[in-house]
Each structure stands twice: as structure tokens, then as C-alpha cells.
Amino acid sequence: MPGAEVHDLGDHAPTDQQYPPKAIAHITWDRNATAAAPQDWATFDDLVGYFTGSGAGSAPHLIWDPFSGRVAQLFPADSRSKSVVDSPGGTRTNRAGRVVIQIEAVFFPYCRYQGQVYPRLVDTPCAGWDRIHAWISSWGVPDVWPMGRPVDFTSHRSEQVWETQGGWYAHAHVPENDHQDPGSWPDFGQSGANPQPSPPPAQDPTPARYQTTINGLQYGYGAQGDQVTEVGRALVAHGFGSHYQQGPGPNWTDADTENYADYQRSLGYTGQAADGVPGSDSLRQLLGALPGGRTVSLAHVIAAAQADPPAAQGHQTYGPDVQIVEQALADEGLLDQQWVDGSFGSRTVSAYAAWQRRCGYSGSGADGIPGKASLDRLAAAHGFTTTD
């Protein structure tokens, strides 16, 4: 990057060119402070020393001082860096793009710099942001936030969005990760020349584009099915259909998201709680009850548990049945929500084995292949029925 201080760590490695280009926004969050107990900012040089020393194993491409505008570059843009968790067998999160450029702003909430306290990154001068943005844009990263511009420390993760859409992502959006930073990030048009605290950031105009599973059914951008039509018709009936040019129909589009966001705001939700992707409470209020009537075939999930693990990542043998079981396992705290995908892969097998052990089974009785008794018990706890 022009003007950056180069501290090349070596250890370059290629990215996965089949994915679209991305940038990932981080803050260093090296200290825990509060409004009542702010702490002094950790210096740019200290963080450069850390990432070029003991922290090299989690180093980003760029380290950015938002107060002075100094930037250190540790990896070239066309190499992966190492600032996000990359779980074995999943999406290679540090590499999933023609470029995956990661930026660590030297910042933590309520840091004190030269006597002034800064609650959010966007309250700093954001000096040098315009140069960083221009350089990353030159690598083809589009000016969009597929999961929404970060305005707080709420996580939104969708592996499908991550793998298919280029643009800017918060660390809080990256699959397989549990960090919730950066909390805020400067606008693409911000010059980095304003040293005064900025007003609260506006919600990103791009509608939210991720999905959620409620009672075994998908909602949000790209979801398909009768449940989507039902939501659309209910929105229209309640006076929240202004964004439809046609429909509603069985395919969830941006219009559904925007209409649902209007409905959420009418209930008093704000911020990312009103991003247009349903939650169970708002959906129940809209429809009167959560759609369900879910049935799982024991024969189907056994077949899937045997066929899906050795197949390609994401392979589905009986996706609808499996997804109901996976959601129940996730609700039990045994499976991460991102793996509720209809594929009875190795993570689902491990989660089901944990459920079997919870039911008192051991040895071959807890091998992760569903049996009737354990599946019936899961069904009873999570509101679905089983068939042979």
C-alpha cells in the first residue's frame, strides 16, 4: 500500500481464487475499558511490535492508527493473512476470496487518547482511512457490507453469504469465528479529516442478506418456501407491503427484508434488531403462531448420517429432515448455528453423539447415528414428530 510502513512477515500463501474479493474490519481491542473506567490507548508501535513478534500467528495485512493515519503492512494484498479463526474442514476464512485483506484498527472502546475518551472507532479522527479505502478498492473489493455495516457488537454470520458475496465484512460476520468487533467502521465516503466525535452512524442502506432458522424453516434473503409467502401476505395485511413491486411470493428478496424491517420498527425494535430478518418473537406476533408441523423420518436421518460425512462439503441427502434435527441440536448447545445447513456432516454426527451421551448412551450407542429412542427424545424436547 502506498505510504505504508512495510514490516513483511514472509510466510506468504495464496488465496482461494474461486471466491469474490473481501476485506475484513477488526479492532485490536487489547484492553477492556468502560465509560466509567476508560483506559489509555495502546500505541501503534506497541501493536506493530506485537504482530511482528509473538502475535505473528494472528497478524493482519494492515495495522492502522486512526489518530495519526500511520499504517503498517505485514502481508501483500494477494497473500492470506492470519487474523481470523480457520477451522479444519470448513471455509478457509483467511483465504476465501481473490483477496481477503484484513485491517486491524489500533483501538478499543472507551480508549483515552491525549486526554479525550473515544467510545467508538468512528468517534476518532479516522485519519488515513481514505487512503486505506482507496487501496483496497483498487483490488476489486466492492463498497458493500453483505451482512450490514457494523453499528454495534452484534454477530451476524452466514457461510452462504460469506462464500458468495464480495465486499466488506466485520470480524463479527466471519464464519467459524466468535469475535464481535469492530462495533463501528467509517463510511466509504469519510475523508478521515474530522477530529471531532461523529454522530451515530446511519444504518447501512444495503438490506441484510443472511438467513435464520425458526422452528425448522428458513427466513431471510434467499430463503424459499410457503413460509416466505405466508410472511409476505401477513406483512401486506398489516400494512407493511410498500416495498413490493410484485408478489409477495415464495422467494425471500430485499423487498421482503425491507417490509419486515418496517414491521419490526413498528414493534419498537431498533438498530440490527430491526434489520428485516425475522426473530421468533416478531414472527409469532405477525402470524399469531410459529409455522411448524414438522416431521422427521428416522430412516432419512440415518441415511444422511451415513452418506453425508464422506461426501463433498455441504452435501445433502435429506436436507429438510436433517435441518430440523440440526436446529434442535443447536438449541441444545451441541452444534454451532452456522452448521444448521441440512447436511448431516461430521460436525452434526459429533453433535448427535453428544446428544446420545446426554441421553445416557455410551460406546457404540453414542456413535452419532440416530436411533429411534434418542430421536424421539429430541423430538419431544423440540416440538417435532418422528416417523420410521
Rank of each mutant, 00 (worst) to 15 (best):
L9M: 08
G10L: 08
Y19Q: 05
P20R: 01
I24V: 09
I27H: 06
W29N: 14
T34A: 01
W41F: 08
T43A: 13
T52M: 00
G55Q: 01
G69T: 13
L74Y: 07
D78I: 06
V99F: 04
V100E: 02
F107W: 01
P109V: 05
G115A: 00
G115R: 01
V117D: 15
T124Y: 06
P125L: 10
G128T: 08
W129P: 12
H133S: 15
A134F: 11
D143T: 14
F153N: 11
T164W: 04
D187V: 08
Q190Y: 14
P197W: 10
P201W: 05
P205I: 03
T206L: 10
T212Q: 09
N215D: 11
G216I: 06
Y219M: 02
G220P: 11
E230Q: 15
Q246Y: 03
G247I: 00
P250K: 09
A273L: 10
G276R: 06
G279R: 03
D281G: 09
R284L: 00
H300Y: 11
A311F: 07
Q316R: 15
D321A: 13
Q323C: 11
V340H: 07
S346Q: 14
Y352W: 05
S362I: 00
A366S: 02
G368F: 05
P370Q: 12
D376Q: 14
D376P: 07
D388V: 00
